[in-house]
């Protein structure tokens, strides 16, 4: 199998502000969010990073999408380093997270063209992809409606389509179904399956066991910024992911309070 994402000893440390120290009642000024994380994902698979809140999943995905720089280590996407070639990496990935928003003033049609131009997609290719993706996800019905007037489900579809406007090889999703109602969550999970069907490699982070069981070919369990286990569901969980996760968690962190 062709390795498409490779993380090598990724490390990220954040400085805690006085306010954060007060909220968390801690005296520590630095916090290690990701500590020497290493894993690989292969072409055409859905790889899930599973872990509790604060485990370092979002930080890892942000480093892979080049929004933040690692303090140590490196990661390679489609052979390009996130440290040395961030622009090349950005052209090969689609990144979707609830932190990234679309300007409510514009229409899906305008935003698709705009982000296409941001990724340097040619006019003809862009028109072809727009026709194909808009009709595939039913966006053509509300292509000229301003984003601020769309329902959550419609908006999620637009965000998904805009994130893959440039036909990226790797699609990275941070907590793809977090905070979504059942219908919109289904739109997302169906979309991920579609992407896999298109031969895309997908990297997602989640703390929802059922999502991993439903979608992921392989999973990496991340606790305290370190990879605690990695493999196919069959390899690491033997059919019971939830039980396996809590066993590993207890081994690392002790009993759950």
């Amino acid at each position: 199998m062709e390795e498409i994402v490779r993380a090598e000893g990724l490390k990220k440390t954040f400085t805690l502000s006085k306010k954060q120290q007060k909220i968390e009642r801690t005296g520590e000024t630095r916090r290690v969010a990701v500590n020497g994380l290493a894993f690989s994902a292969y072409r055409g698979e859905i790889y899930g990073l599973l872990g509790p809140n604060g485990a370092g999943k979002t930080t890892t995905l942000r480093m892979l999408s080049t929004l933040i720089k690692p303090d140590g280590g490196d990661a390679f996407l489609c052979g390009h380093s996130v440290v040395k070639d961030p622009e090349k990496v950005r052209d090969r990935i689609g990144f979707l997270t609830s932190d990234l928003k679309l300007e409510g003033f514009f229409t899906p049609d305008y935003l698709f063209d705009f982000f296409g131009a941001m990724h340097g997609v040619g006019k003809e290719t862009l028109a072809r992809r727009k026709k194909e993706l808009f009709s595939r996800f039913g966006i053509d019905k509300f292509a000229e409606v301003r984003v601020r007037d769309l329902s959550t489900g419609m908006l999620q579809k637009v965000s998904l389509v805009v994130s893959i406007v440039h036909d990226p090889e790797v699609v990275i999703f941070d907590e793809p179904t977090n905070g979504l109602d059942v219908l919109t969550a289904k739109v997302v999970t169906d979309f991920l399956r579609e992407l896999k069907g298109m031969g895309k490699s997908i990297l997602l982070s989640t703390h929802i066991f059922s999502l991993v069981e439903k979608l992921c070919d392989r999973v990496g369990i991340i606790i305290d910024g370190r990879l605690a286990a990695e493999g196919t569901l069959e390899d690491i969980a033997q059919g019971n992911l939830e039980e396996t996760f809590f066993r590993i968690y207890r081994e690392r962190k002790g009993e759950i309070a």
Binding site: L100, K101, F115
Partner: peptide, 17 residues
């Protein structure tokens, strides 16, 4: 405004300089 709403980050994740 764009920074606060998170729309600037969406542009930052593209390959534009």
């Amino acid at each position: 405004g764009e920074k606060e709403r998170g729309t600037l980050s969406t542009v930052l994740v593209t390959s534009v300089k």
